[in-house]
Each structure stands twice: as structure tokens, then as C-alpha cells.
Design a protein around this nucleic acid. Structure first.
Lengths: 193, 193
DNA sequence: TAATTATTTGAACGATCGCTCAAATTTAAC
DNA sequence: GTTAAATTTGAGCGATCGTTCAAATAATTA
């Protein structure tokens, strides 16, 4: 049950991903969901409430993907494929290259308090998943035993952000796949304490 | 002459940096510049016109800083200090941790065409400066002779973005200085063609 | 000082913003 | 089939958006 609610969240995700939190108007959402304002407000309370559900759903999916990487037998190989994925979206969905969380975070000073705290929580939650990947790769021997786990997790998150941000400003995102290789390679590089 | 114009641009930079392009209202600018709308419009034409001057000024300063790194005798050492700088801003200016260009770029789909093209140009311009740093470091022997210059320049730009983005979501940005060391270290790492 | 030009002022315009709520409609319960 | 509850509708609210322009003021020239 409550199927149309899930559908509304997916349609709203499209809009927020394309236009950002500030850039998205209630009228954009009304069009995308094909619902009148009253329906949206009775279902989600406010624009912020709808966005928070979108963010929660988005983060959950992404977290699941990263945990699947962590739970595989060859986490480092799987991480490579995970990182490459955003570079393969078709032109018509170019807005999906950038991470929705990072995109929203750029408007920081103008965001409602509830959105700010949930963004922080989402980033921390995903960082935990990256940490699980590092830990697993260490246990399989794909990474050295003395790798600083927390730093490496944050670093991977940073690389994820860097690659996707650069990819949005380049003609052909797929041409950046060398960056994926360098990320995996640098993971085994120097980690001076 | 035209001193107050320069001053207006600096004050407007503060506001755009803090609130982003979409998040900044003409009334915010009127307050910051202590000017009435007519004055601003006669001087800059529009909100977009004022932003473009801000962007141009900002890019010029940043470009100059990177070229100074390139023109030093120890470019790699200077690059380290350049990268560390955004991590040292005081709490009261936390918005300056993130790069103004990257911040604006996040609102991509909602930006006027003129702003979009100037943002692309600014990123390309700064990439050229990073390229000059790589070239110089290669000539001083700080970097290997076979480093792929264009890719390395883009990669450094990506690391610059990653570090500053992560730094905005962390309690103490200065605690990320290990990331600067890793960037410099990874520059000498693997660059598989 | 008087005349001319350049700049600044600020009330106000039309458009859009997030959001409300009484009324209409659909769904569920008996 | 009737009634009650839940959901949807959409006109429209007050606030704010970027912008305009006739009038007032300041700066320059004669």
C-alpha cells in the first residue's frame, strides 16, 4: 500500500536533483507529482518535509549500494565499479552526475535548520558505509593492515565528490574514468600519520 | 578612481559567497552595498551583471595566487601552502571554506546562461593555472618527467574541490590538513595511462 | 553663481514564492 | 444504499522576488 507516496517521492527526487532545494518551487513539484498544493501539504506537510523524505530515500539507496560493495568478496574491485557508475549516465540525465546531497549542501546558509542537520547526518551515514568498505578490503588483504580507516573513508567520500563535481563540468563524463583508477590506486598509496 | 565600485564588488562577493547566487536577493545586496536599487542597476545593469563582476574579480585573485605558486622556485611546496590556506579561515568566515565557483555551480540548472558560460570559463582558466604549476614542478624535478600534465591539473582542481567541500561539513577544518599532504604525495603516485 | 550633466533615491510594479482552507470528491464502513 | 471519514481540489493569501523610473540630489563645467 501507499504506493503513490513512494512514486511521489521518486518524482520529487527528479525535480530536487535537477533544480536544487532553493531552485525548486512548489509549482514545479505540483507539476511533477501531478497533484494540487493541498494534497502535497496534507501528505508531506511542507516543501521541507517532502525534501526530507526525498533525501532519506536517496541516502538509503546510496547507502545500500555502498554496503553491497562492502559485503562483496572483492570490495575494492566493486568500489571501482561503484565509482565509475555516475560517469555513465546518459546526457538526458546529466543532473544525476552530481550527488544530490552535495548539491543541496552548496546552498547551506539558506537552508532550513532541519535540512541542514539531515544533510550532515546523511553524509555521516554514507561515510560509515565507506568505512565498512575499507574495513572489508583490509580484511580481504586488498588494502594494507595499517590503513587509517576513518581517514580513508572520508578521503574516499571526498574523491567521490570531486569526481562527480568535475564530471558535471566536462563534455564527456566517461572520459574521466582514469580518475576512478587513480582513486583505487591512491587508496594503496601513502597514508602518513 | 572608481574606488567605490571596487568596494561594491568586494561587499557583493561577501554576500554571494555566503548565500549563493539564487539565495542572494537584491535586497541583501542593497543592504551590503548600502545603495538603493537604482544605483546598483545603473552601475551593474542587473543582479547577473553584478555577479559576473564578482566572479571575474574572484577568479582573477585566485588565478593570481595559483600563478604565484607556479612562478615560485619550489612550486610543489608552495602548492601545499596554497591548498592548506582554506582550512585556516576563522569560524566567522566559514562560508569562505568552499570555493565560490563550485558553490555557484551547484545551482547549475537554475542559472542564467551568461552565468553558466562564465563559470565554465572560470574553471577552465583556473585549470590552466594549475597546469602551469604542474609544468613548473616538472621542470624543477619535483615531479616526474612523464606526468600527464592535463590530467594532473584537472586532478589537482578536483582535490581542491574535494578538500574544501569536506571541510565545510567538518567541525574543525584544520584537522583535514593530512589531506593536503596526501594530495601532494599522490601527485607523485601512479598515473597509469 | 548659473547651467548642465551624472548619480542616487525609493515608492511601486508585475511575477512568483510557500502555503492555507472551505468546498468538492473519493473511499471505507455499516 | 447511506453515512462517515479521508483525500483532493484550486482559488487565493501575504510576503518576497528582480526590476523600473520620475523626481531629488550631487558633481562638473562655464
Amino acid at each position: 500500500m501507499s504506493y503513490p507516496r513512494e512514486q511521489s517521492i521518486q518524482q520529487a527526487t527528479e525535480v530536487f536533483w535537477l533544480k536544487g532545494y532553493l531552485g525548486t518551487g512548489m509549482r514545479d513539484l505540483q507539476t511533477a507529482l501531478d497533484k494540487r498544493p493541498g494534497s502535497i501539504y496534507s501528505a508531506f506537510g511542507s516543501k521541507e518535509g517532502l525534501y526530507l523524505e526525498v533525501l532519506n530515500h536517496y541516502t538509503g539507496v546510496l547507502h545500500g549500494q555502498i554496503m553491497a560493495v562492502a559485503n562483496s568478496d572483492t570490495p575494492l574491485q566493486q568500489l571501482r565499479e561503484f565509482l565509475r557508475f555516475p560517469l555513465t549516465v546518459e546526457d538526458s540525465a546529466a543532473h544525476k552526475i552530481q550527488c544530490l546531497i552535495v548539491k543541496t549542501q552548496a546552498d547551506w546558509a539558506e537552508l532550513p535548520e532541519g535540512v541542514k542537520s539531515e544533510l550532515q547526518a546523511a553524509l555521516a551515514h554514507l561515510r560509515e558505509a565507506f568505512q565498512a568498505v575499507i574495513l572489508k578490503a583490509r580484511s580481504t588483504g586488498e588494502l594494507a593492515a595499517d590503513i587509517p580507516v576513518e581517514r580513508a573513508a572520508m578521503w574516499v567520500q571526498g574523491q567521490f565528490i570531486a569526481m562527480r563535481t568535475l564530471a558535471t563540468s566536462v563534455e564527456s563524463p566517461a572520459s574521466l574514468s582514469w580518475m576512478v583508477d587513480k582513486i583505487v590506486s591512491d587508496l594503496s598509496g601513502e597514508w602518513t600519520q
